[in-house]
Nucleic acid binder design. Structure first.
Lengths: 252, 252
DNA sequence: CACCTCTGCGTTGTATACATCTTTGCCCAT
DNA sequence: ATGGGCAAAGATGTATACAACGCAGAGGTG
């Protein structure tokens, strides 16, 4: 497979460094707990220390790296419990976004897009056959639905907080969708999630803030369930981006 | 008044740059909307571009500065609505922390510290006289209570999300406490807040997750009320750290 | 007069030299 | 054998030179 980072042509060296380091970390090439030195990354990436330093600072903010007491960086790892909590934080913030959206009213164009998005997912699920690309299309539309939900709130502050959580590899709405390819009950899970999407949209249309918030929170917990399934199925876990960062119970 | 930043002796130049820029932004010396150039800050702070660049990156992450399309930075400003939302986000995340704490159980030592903290606030409020330093002591203990609440959850992920929100100048639990010096009904507000503190602690002790979450959320809304009061009282507003960053309705 | 271009200046991007701090591992003393 | 200290290697912190980019203003042209 070609190195995806080298393909980024029109990017600053700092961006290249960010993408390169993030990529190697998520692939487990740079292993959890490993110390990252600027000079080592200079050799690895072929750029000088200046962009490497900027990239390290950014990735530490993002949460992938952990600053040490002596001004170095370690590749961070995540316990199951931390991933669970991250998903719960996402659900809570998405719930807040939905509540605000319901209270303040969602602009018609965004409601339209939400409806259109769900119609798209309905179509994908109706035609889904094992092995075809329906997971990819589901994942895209699912991400879009969640993005629209945030947009519906119109709140830059909620967006800011949510962006930070979702930057973690396991907290995004579609983090475990790719793992579904290896999970037998996959289609049923996706259909359940889509039912929840419809309920959420219905509550938004009815401007029922009291109903939409717990619906959205519960919806996020599907990701927790998917995490549990993936952790018990190594084929599925391999599909999850960033799986090498998960610190398993009792191991190492 | 002496420049507080120059007093920081044992700090790297990067830290000095962060503190210096943040200080000048919050004081309104660098005005909202103003473009910050690296060379300008080099002159202002007396350090070279390298630490200035690092500081700009950090402060942009923090939310005080806004990256422009052409790789520059602007001093950010905040609408009333944004500050309201930021406080709501804080309340929501603190509510999540409290719910998790109630569900998982709070360690006895932390419960002890919470009780001790509230006893301290009770004492401060009982002896409060206008003009004495009770606001400073209240503010410290109040911050400590909120920090303990977060610690009680034991969740690094909630802590991470909350840290990000609270880094904004107006979202911290004690952001508007200093303004109270100029607000007549101040003592009554603080007493109400302390009543809520007691209710929250009671709910935690009873491990009532369903009760503690809305209590904490509502508690945060006192800050929203304080913001409203401060915005209508320019003497009070002057006391608020970062007041120059508030974009008033209809102005400028 | 409007518009386009080209030039010059101001700003950020990058590499690198040098300073300083941290760590490591060896050697010596006990 | 163990502990402490010191020296050397390696790491990050900082300054700065140079490159590249972008914007504004002057001047030319339709």
């Amino acid at each position: 497979m070609a190195d995806p980072v080298a393909l980024v042509r029109d990017a600053s060296l700092t961006e290249r460094a960010v993408l390169g380091i993030r990529d190697q970390v998520l692939r487990g090439k740079l292993r959890a707990g490993e110390r990252l030195t600027e000079l080592g990354l200079v050799d690895l990436l072929g750029v000088s220390r200046t962009p490497v330093r900027a990239a390290l600072q950014k990735l530490a903010e993002e949460g992938l790296l952990e600053p040490t007491q002596s001004n170095g960086y370690l590749v961070r790892n995540f316990s199951e419990a931390e991933i669970f909590d991250a998903i719960e934080v996402r659900g809570t913030l998405e719930g807040l976004a939905a509540r605000i959206a319901a209270e303040r009213g969602v602009p018609q164009p965004i409601l339209e897009q939400l409806r259109h998005c769900l119609a798209g997912i309905d179509a994908v699920l109706a035609g889904a056959r094992p092995g075809d690309g329906h997971l990819v299309r589901y994942s895209e539309l699912n991400s879009r639905f969640h993005a629209l939900l945030l947009e519906a709130s119109g709140s830059t502050m909620v967006a800011r907080a949510l962006a930070r959580v979702v930057s973690l590899p396991f907290a995004a709405p579609d983090a475990f969708v790719s793992a579904q390819a290896k999970i037998p009950e996959s289609l049923q899970i996706l259909k359940t999630a889509q039912l929840q999407h419809h309920e959420i949209l219905g509550a938004l249309e009815a401007r029922s803030s009291a109903r939409v918030e717990p619906l959205v929170r519960e919806h996020a917990r599907i990701a927790r369930k998917n995490l549990e399934l993936a952790l018990r199925n190594s084929d599925a876990l391999e599909q999850v981006v960033g799986a090498p960062l998960i610190r398993r119970r009792g191991r190492s």
